[in-house]
Write a protein that binds this DNA or RNA. Structure first.
Lengths: 212, 212
DNA sequence: GTTTAATTTAAACGAGTGTTTAAAATAGAG
DNA sequence: CTCTATTTTAAACACTCGTTTAAATTAAAC
């Protein structure tokens, strides 16, 4: 018989993998509970509903990542007052990769969850993040704005949303893309390679001079 | 009683709007047929299955857009042998905006459908596009690769997908973003203005030198 | 006008969904 | 051990889904 005390953890572990791979609405509670080897009703017993399970899955990552990212930005700003955009975006790499120590494939799972959530939640995920982690978020945006003073605020608004789209879309389809890249170019990229590929791209886009 | 001869068109019109707004799997045939004011079974009668309806919705746009984009690229290359990345991407603006003449909100609908399809179809959309419009696609990719010869093909693969994410995500949330931009910065942008903002961003990202 | 083909319609099918219930099993406290 | 509270379990509920069927209706052919 299954050790009772870790039923919640077994559900979260199975759910986050399936959510990241297949999306939220495409993942049934029966699939989650069968993979977690727990009873179907235990999800509603421990989490109340599927929606609250989704929030719990996201919060388990965000509670680790957001403070870690904040701390990295603070230490960058204290050591380098003229940090480049590349530096700013690069500070996120370590907190992201540290998620692999938290759980196997943690980085890829977290980014895919973010992408899925952003696309599927009709803005609810953004609301969830801004209300729960708003201070960390504005701190990061301010660091970006300060390091690209030649971009007017209105233009920067658009470019940061372009960047969000790049990251979210790429991560949501990261599995399919890495498969194609392996088949067509013999490249075997892990999630870290993709992250390091996207940073120069978004840095260049955000910083490119505004054409008249 | 409804004019029989346009049942297929009524279904396609209702389906593409709902698919773009809510995604494919989140849109039921009952919702489509009720909005189209046709009988539920007529979808299976005219299209065979939901999957084939999705393909028909996409094909109706791709059949117009792909040849138009190809023709624009050909005429650019014949008039300018050293076209910049900005020029290449800018050739897509007219074919995209012309979709608004095809159907109301055609441009945004098409881009949203592309995004939904890429995310939901587990690579099936990419197979569909490459097998049905492969020539147009490789022609465009070749034009991009030729105008940025310092980027290796494998790297370009990733950057073009970053670009796809940027465009698709931006257009999907263009309504909300233009509203926020108007409220926060007094900017009043239509779809065309957003497209023209994004082109310098993606051109810079695609062309940025690869770091060792 | 009659006959044939194409289309529309209402109804049902079988499978899958999240959630709830009440009984059974287990764990912890006295 | 006994009693209580927590947790697990099997079963059912109410609902939605894509699809199919067969009859009714409309359109086309002769």
């Amino acid at each position: 018989m299954v050790n009772r005390s870790d039923t919640k953890t077994r559900i979260l572990d199975a759910a986050e993998k399936l959510f990241a791979e297949r999306g939220f609405s495409e993942t049934s509670l029966r699939l989650i509970t069968s993979k977690a080897e727990v009873n179907l009703a235990s999800v509603n017993y421990h989490f109340g509903s599927k929606k609250e399970l989704i929030r719990a899955v996201l919060a388990r990552y965000l509670d680790v990542f957001m403070p870690a990212a904040s701390s990295e930005i603070v230490s960058l700003q204290s050591s380098n007052k003229d940090a480049s955009l590349n530096d700013i975006f690069s500070t996120l790499v370590k907190p992201l990769l540290d998620l692999n120590q938290l759980r196997s494939e943690g980085t890829r799972t977290f980014l895919q969850l973010l992408g899925r959530g952003y696309i599927e939640s009709h803005g609810h995920l953004m609301w969830f993040i801004t209300t729960h982690y708003g201070d960390h978020l504005t701190q990061f945006v301010k660091a970006v704005v300060d390091s690209a003073p030649h971009i007017p605020p209105a233009e920067m608004f658009w470019r940061l949303h372009f960047t969000l789209g790049t990251v979210v879309f790429t991560m949501a389809s990261a599995d399919a893309l890495t498969e194609i890249a392996a088949a067509d170019f013999g490249e075997h990229n892990d999630i870290e390679a993709v992250i390091r590929k996207v940073i120069p791209y978004i840095s260049a886009g955000v910083a490119v001079p505004v054409t008249a």
